[in-house]
Computed example of a mutant assay.
Amino acid sequence: MSPEPVIVGGREIPAAAIAAEAQHHPAPDAEAAWQAAAQALAVRQLLLDEAERLGIAPGPREDAEGRPLTEEDARIDALLEREVRTPEADEAACRRFYEANRERFASPVLVEAAHILIEADPADQFAMGLATGDARTLIRQLQADPDRFAELARTRSACPSREQGGNLGQVGPGQMVKPFEQALFALPERTLCLDPVRTRFGVHVIRSGRRAEGRQLPFEAVQEAIAGYLEEASYRRAVAQYIAILAGQAGVSGVAIAGAEGAMVQ
Results as ranks from 00 to 15, higher is better:
209 G>M: 02
188 P>I: 01
237 R>M: 11
243 I>T: 08
194 L>R: 14
201 F>G: 10
201 F>D: 15
217 L>E: 00
215 R>Q: 11
246 L>E: 00
204 H>V: 15
211 R>A: 06
251 G>T: 07
219 F>C: 01
217 L>Y: 00
213 E>R: 10
205 V>C: 09
243 I>N: 01
236 R>W: 04
188 P>W: 03
192 L>Q: 02
211 R>N: 04
198 R>K: 14
229 Y>P: 07
205 V>L: 07
189 E>S: 15
209 G>E: 02
236 R>T: 05
219 F>M: 01
239 V>W: 04
241 Q>C: 09
187 L>A: 14
213 E>N: 08
242 Y>I: 01
242 Y>G: 01
193 C>T: 05
227 A>R: 13
214 G>K: 09
230 L>C: 09
219 F>K: 00
229 Y>H: 14
224 E>C: 07
209 G>S: 02
240 A>M: 03
188 P>K: 05
187 L>V: 13
250 A>V: 06
191 T>Y: 04
234 S>K: 14
227 A>S: 14
251 G>H: 13
211 R>I: 12
200 R>K: 12
246 L>G: 02
238 A>E: 03
218 P>L: 05
213 E>M: 08
250 A>P: 01
245 I>A: 08
204 H>W: 15
218 P>D: 02
191 T>H: 10
251 G>E: 06
241 Q>K: 13
239 V>Y: 03
232 E>V: 09
224 E>T: 14
198 R>P: 07
